[in-house]
């Protein structure tokens, strides 16, 4: 006796399983008769839907054939169209998802951010907080990459005395470097420590040419980095690499992440990868209890 035959001794034949299941399944005709909706229409649509699946009927023909009936049957509910279509009037609202299970704590995001935005010493738009938790032998290393959360209710913009920091339509919290007076109230008020003051330091001593060019933050090209020249003396923070977004590129940290732990996209579009990941049961946001509504979502 072969192995397969031995196993068959313990199994019923496939049809017996079907029978067992069928006794549990309700009669579809009865179920549909009980519903408030047209049963004939449902059966006809079901048959044609099979034709669409097998390629004997186009989707457009299917819609044309049933649209009048569906309008009568479902009214406005049908006419409102696909609930998953993004509303073009809302525009893009950027968001980021960071999968902590994929983060290895290599700090590539921090380094690429510094290179992209040419931030001076003491200013890092992105950091990775690395912590060991637990007691030996139950230890875990936790890496928490931290860009600016681009909060929807940003405490920094709330406290800024000059409205130099404000919320853009695309979800990004921006700073007007030409208006900021450098009072640093926002640095104190940010619950994520995402803001830094530009004390005017430079890497020029260890990196020739550091001062020759600055990143075109918020799309403004400010040329060379010079003593006392803006943005020295004002507060700076992560811009979601807005200058890169404007030319169709992802933020530097997202592009360079070695483990693909970062996702970037439009949270207004329910079909975007970030929107789908944001709905994951693993999703959480930092200091949710403060009501800041961050646009950076973590997956635990």
């Amino acid at each position: 006796m072969g192995l397969g035959d031995k196993l068959n001794l313990f199994m019923l034949d496939p049809k017996s399983y079907d029978h067992m299941v069928n006794t549990q399944v309700k009669d579809p005709i009865n179920v549909m008769t009980d519903s408030d909706y047209d049963m004939d229409l449902a059966i006809r649509m079901g048959k044609d839907a099979q034709k669409v699946l097998s390629g004997n009927m186009t989707q457009d023909d299917f819609h044309q054939k049933y649209s009048p009936d569906l309008k009568i049957e479902f009214g406005d509910l049908y006419a409102s169209g696909n609930a998953n279509t993004p509303d073009p009037s809302k525009g893009v609202r950027w968001g980021m998802v960071i999968d902590l299970a994929k983060c290895v704590g290599c700090d590539t995001c921090t380094v690429s951010c510094k290179a992209e935005n040419r931030t001076p010493p003491g200013v890092s738009y992105n950091v990775v907080i690395e912590q060991e938790i637990g007691v030996f032998p139950n230890l875990a290393k936790v890496n928490l990459p931290r860009p600016c959360m681009q909060c929807d209710k940003p405490p920094c913009a709330q406290v800024c005395p000059t409205r130099a920091t404000y919320k853009l339509e695309n979800g990004i919290v921006a700073i007007d470097y030409d208006r900021c007076i450098g009072c640093r109230y926002c640095v104190v008020a940010c619950p994520y420590g995402a803001r830094s003051f530009d004390f005017g330091e430079s890497y020029e001593d260890e990196m020739i040419g550091f001062n020759d060019i600055t990143a075109p933050e918020y799309g403004v090209d400010r040329g060379t980095r010079e003593k006392g020249k803006t943005p020295q003396g004002v507060v700076r923070k992560c811009t979601f690499c807005m200058h890169r977004l404007e030319r169709g590129e992802e933020p530097a940290c997202v592009e360079t992440c070695i483990g693909d732990a970062r996702y970037f996209g439009d949270l207004n579009d329910p079909n975007s990868v970030v929107s789908k990941l944001a709905a994951s049961p693993r999703a959480f946001r930092l200091k949710e209890e403060l009501g800041t509504e961050p646009r950076v979502i973590y997956l635990r």
Binding site: T162, R179, C180, I181, G182, C183, F197, G233
Partner: peptide
């Protein structure tokens, strides 16, 4: 103030 010259902005 980081930018004393801009104090009037407040």
């Amino acid at each position: 103030l980081g930018r004393m010259d801009r104090f009037l902005n407040a």
